[in-house]
Simulated assay, not measured.
Amino acid sequence: MKLGISMPSSSLLSKLTTALIKDGVMYISVKYGDQEIKRDDGRLFNYYNDDTFLKLQEKIENLKVLKMWKTVDVRQNREDEYWLNVLMRKK
């Protein structure tokens, strides 16, 4: 399932974790960086790097990061943008 939503806090990550069964695996991809951008249309975009995402994930005690990696955006003219990919398992 692909959700096109922003992640403003650990509350969304907590809700997604609750939806997982024990030992369930979750993949999340977020824009790489350390900023929060609010667009004129009201949309909120949160960027995470390894450290800021781990701080967010640590608030969810039954969620363990299995793998974390950074990839280049493959869309045309976005080669200078990156994504943080995270694979996690519910304990």
Rank of each mutant, 00 (worst) to 15 (best):
Lys31Leu: 11
Ser10Lys: 09
Met88Asp: 00
Ile5Tyr: 02
Arg75Ala: 14
Ile60Phe: 04
Leu44Gly: 06
Tyr47Lys: 00
Leu63Ala: 03
Leu3Ile: 08
Arg39Cys: 13
Lys91Val: 13
Ile5Cys: 08
Val65Tyr: 00
Gly33Cys: 05
Val72Phe: 09
Leu63Asp: 02
Leu87Ser: 07
Val72Ile: 15
Lys67Asp: 09
Arg75Ser: 14
Tyr32Val: 09
Ser10Ile: 04
Ile60Thr: 09
Val30Lys: 02
Met1Leu: 10
Ile60Trp: 00
Ser10Asn: 11
Leu56Glu: 00
Asn77Asp: 15
Asp41Cys: 10
Glu79Gly: 15
Lys15Trp: 09
Leu56Trp: 01
Met88Ile: 04
Trp83His: 05
Ile28Leu: 13
Thr71Trp: 05
Lys55Arg: 13
Asn85Ser: 07
Lys15Asp: 13
Ile60Ser: 06
Ile5Gly: 07
Gly4Gln: 03
Val86Tyr: 03
Ile60Tyr: 00
Asn62Trp: 00
Leu16Tyr: 09
Leu12Tyr: 11
Ala19Leu: 08
Glu61Phe: 11
Asn62Asp: 13
Lys31Asp: 10
Gln76Met: 13
Leu87Tyr: 02
Asn46Leu: 07
Gly4Glu: 06
Leu12Gly: 03
Val74Phe: 13
Met88Ala: 09
Thr18Val: 13
Thr52Trp: 03
Lys90Pro: 01
Ser10Tyr: 10
Leu56Asp: 02
Thr17Ala: 06
Tyr47His: 06
Leu87Thr: 08
Arg75Leu: 13
Leu54Val: 12
Phe53Tyr: 01
Val65Met: 05
Gln35Asp: 14
Lys67Cys: 08
Asp73Ala: 13
Ser29Tyr: 08
Asp41Ala: 09
Glu79Phe: 08
Phe45Thr: 03
Asn46Tyr: 05
Ser10Leu: 00
Leu87Cys: 02
Lys64Asn: 13
Asp34Trp: 09
Ala19Val: 01
Ala19Asp: 03
Met88Arg: 03
Leu56Ala: 08
Gly42Val: 05
Trp83Ile: 04
Glu58Cys: 03
Lys90Phe: 05
Leu44Glu: 01
Tyr47Trp: 00
Trp69Gly: 07
Val30Phe: 01
Arg39Gly: 11
Tyr48His: 02
Arg75Thr: 12
Tyr82Thr: 01
Asn46Phe: 04
Asp80Met: 06
Lys2Asn: 14
Leu63Cys: 02
Ser9Glu: 05
Asp34His: 12
Ile21Cys: 14
Glu79Tyr: 10
Val86Gln: 07
Gly33Phe: 01
Lys91Phe: 12
Arg89Trp: 04
Gly24Leu: 02
